[in-house]
């Protein structure tokens, strides 16, 4: 029997295929059933060293919907970090106040360091340009809802594949499910070598292209990402690639695509998806955002050991 009790959620690579399927199954249950008391008496600490309204609120909502309570902060200025306290000391102290830590941090690997430092479960809510595993579970759950099954799909990843951590994690997870992957980006924003190596080791079929029209007719899912201005060290590099891909209803009408193609996006968007797309049958990104609650409910309840 699969149990995620006390498991840290740091990187999607820590999860087996069976554990991923278990989380998706539990997410489906949480969406159908309202369980207002299962986390009563439990406290979640939302430690956001880097701002993120959506992820923080979704964890807070998930915890409160299950009867738990939430403490935390969402800006560095109010923490002891500004007084020079180490991350390890901070989290070891906060461990005494709560049952589970949700951490977002600007340094890559901060969540792994936190998990190594405390005995309670730690959830990575995004660290630097590295992993964002709960978003990956949300993405997988949305794909499963859209296609009933996540095996043997053709997935296009569009946009910033270099810094887009959600694309990295999703590609890694989909490698369990025999996906054909198409990476659509300018050369300067290609998927990093590390992830390509992992995919090659796992015999995943993938293709790198620069324009969506080269592969659009193959796709079951198109996963769009925002080109993230904040990840570029040089503004001039951002200027070269911003606005490179713009999807709209008229663009989709001109492209050759499958009728049941679904478009996902972790949001927020800038100009890569026009609002005219929102009312088309392709758009799945708002359902994807709403799925954040049942998926995070399932993850919190699983690692706190109240659902099996």
């Amino acid at each position: 029997m699969i149990s995620l009790k006390d498991k840290d959620i740091i990187s999607i690579s820590d999860f087996t295929k069976e554990e991923i399927l278990y989380v998706l199954e539990m997410s489906g249950k949480m969406e159908k059933e309202y369980c207002p008391d299962i986390l009563r008496g439990k406290i979640l600490a939302n430690l956001f060293f880097e701002p993120s309204t959506r992820t923080r609120l979704s964890f807070e909502t998930a915890m409160k919907r299950l009867g738990g309570q939430v403490i935390g902060f969402d800006e560095l200025g109010t923490t002891s970090t500004v007084k020079g306290e180490s991350l390890r000391d901070s989290v070891k102290i906060i461990e005494g106040y709560c049952d589970i830590i949700v951490l977002r941090h600007f340094l890559e690997g901060a969540s792994r360091l936190t998990a190594d430092s405390v005995d309670i479960p730690v959830v990575n809510a995004g660290d630097g340009a590295s992993q964002h595993p709960t978003q990956t579970f949300v993405d997988l759950y949305t794909i499963k809802k859209a296609k009933s099954d996540i095996e043997n799909l053709s997935i296009g990843f569009l946009g910033d594949l270099k810094y887009g951590r959600t694309a990295h994690s999703l590609a890694y997870a989909l490698a369990h499910f025999n996906a054909d992957m198409y990476f659509i980006s300018p050369p300067s924003l290609r998927m990093p070598k590390d992830y390509m190596e992992e995919l090659e080791i796992r015999n995943v079929s993938y293709q790198e292209v620069e324009t969506i029209s080269e592969v659009s007719d193959n796709l079951d899912i198109l996963y769009c990402t925002r080109i993230q201005k904040e990840r570029f060290a040089e503004p001039v590099e951002y200027e070269k690639v911003k606005g490179l891909y713009k999807l709209s209803k008229s663009v989709m009408d001109e492209l050759k695509v499958k009728d049941d193609l679904k478009i996902l996006h972790p949001l927020p968007r800038v100009d890569e998806m026009d609002e005219s797309l929102d009312t088309t049958e392709y758009a799945m990104y708002f359902q994807q955002a709403y799925s954040g609650i049942p998926v995070r409910e399932a993850l919190l309840a699983s690692v706190l050991g109240v659902i099996q």
């Binding site: 690579s13 901060a110 792994r112 360091l113 660290d127 630097g128 590295s130 590390d194 190596e197």
Partner: peptide
């Protein structure tokens, strides 16, 4: 090929 325990870069 070496993977960092923390940031997982290769």
């Amino acid at each position: 090929r070496i993977r960092c325990h923390y940031c997982e870069r290769h």
